[in-house]
Design a protein around this nucleic acid. Structure first.
Length: 211
DNA sequence: AAGCCGGGGAA
DNA sequence: TTCCCAGGCTT
C-alpha cells in the first residue's frame, strides 16, 4: 500500500529533481555501461567533486576494460591516487578486467565482482539504462528514515522493498533526485526551512512540535 | 545482524 | 592523534 504521504513525497521529489539536479559528466545521456560503472565504483566513499576531477583523465587513459587489463596496477594507482583507496580500487579493477572482456549485463552478476556491492550494482544499471532498481545508501536511508520514520523498516532487505515500492516508473530521475535531495537538503544537518516535505515529514513535524 | 576493513577528513 | 564515516566484506 502506498500512503498519501508517500505519494506526495514521490511527486514532490520528482518535481524538485527537475530543477535541482546536479550535473556531472557521468550523468550525461548515452554514457556506456562501463562509463557509468566506473563513476559509481569511484563514488563510494568519495566526494563527487573529487571523482569529477579524475573521471575524464581516467576514461581517456582507460577507455575500456581491456585497457585496464593491459595496464599495470601501478599505472592504475597513479591515475586514481587523488581519489584515495587507490590500492584497494586498483586491485579490484585489475581483477575485474583480467576476468571479464565486458561487464555483466545485470545487477546480480555485477555484484559478484570484487568491491561491487548492492549500491554500485543497482546504481550502475539504473543510471546507465534506466532499470527500475532501488538504490540505497546513507543519504537515501537518512531521507526515508526522517520523512517516514516508523514506516521505514530496520532490515536492509525490507528497506530495499520499501524503496522499490515507492519508486515510480521513471526510476532514473527519481533516484538521481533522491541522492541530490539527500546531499543538498536532507543533509546530516537538514535544511528543513527550504524542504518541500514539511507538511508530512515526521522528522520536521516532531522538531517543530518540540520548539 | 554485527563487526571489520582501509583510509579520508574533521575535530 | 583520535574519532567518525560509508561502502563492501566477513563471519
Amino acid at each position: 500500500m502506498t500512503s498519501k504521504a508517500e505519494r506526495r513525497f514521490r511527486a514532490n521529489l520528482l518535481e524538485w529533481g527537475e530543477e535541482n539536479r546536479r550535473e556531472y559528466p557521468w550523468r550525461e545521456l548515452n554514457r556506456t555501461l562501463y562509463e557509468v560503472f566506473v563513476a559509481e565504483f569511484f563514488l563510494t566513499q568519495t566526494p563527487a567533486d573529487n571523482v569529477a576531477a579524475v573521471y575524464p583523465v581516467f576514461l581517456e587513459r582507460f577507455p575500456t576494460l581491456d585497457a585496464i587489463a593491459e595496464a599495470s596496477e601501478d599505472e592504475l594507482v597513479e591515475v586514481i591516487e587523488p581519489l584515495g583507496f587507490q590500492n584497494m580500487r586498483a586491485g579490484a579493477l585489475k581483477q575485474i578486467a583480467s576476468a571479464h572482456d565486458r561487464l555483466p549485463t545485470g545487477p546480480e552478476p555485477l555484484m559478484e565482482l570484487p568491491r561491487v556491492g548492492r549500491y554500485v550494482a543497482n546504481a550502475t544499471f539504473c543510471f546507465a539504462r534506466g532499470d527500475r532498481l532501488p538504490i540505497l545508501d546513507r543519504n537515501v536511508e537518512r531521507v526515508y528514515s526522517r520523512v517516514f520514520r516508523d514506516a521505514w523498516p530496520e532490515a536492509e532487505a525490507d528497506q530495499l522493498t520499501f524503496t522499490q515500492r515507492l519508486m515510480p516508473d521513471k526510476a532514473r530521475p527519481y533516484n538521481l533526485a533522491l541522492l541530490d535531495f539527500g546531499a543538498l537538503v536532507c543533509q546530516t544537518e537538514p535544511l528543513c526551512e527550504q524542504c518541500f516535505a514539511n507538511e508530512y515529514c515526521v522528522y520536521y513535524q516532531e522538531s517543530t512540535r518540540r520548539s
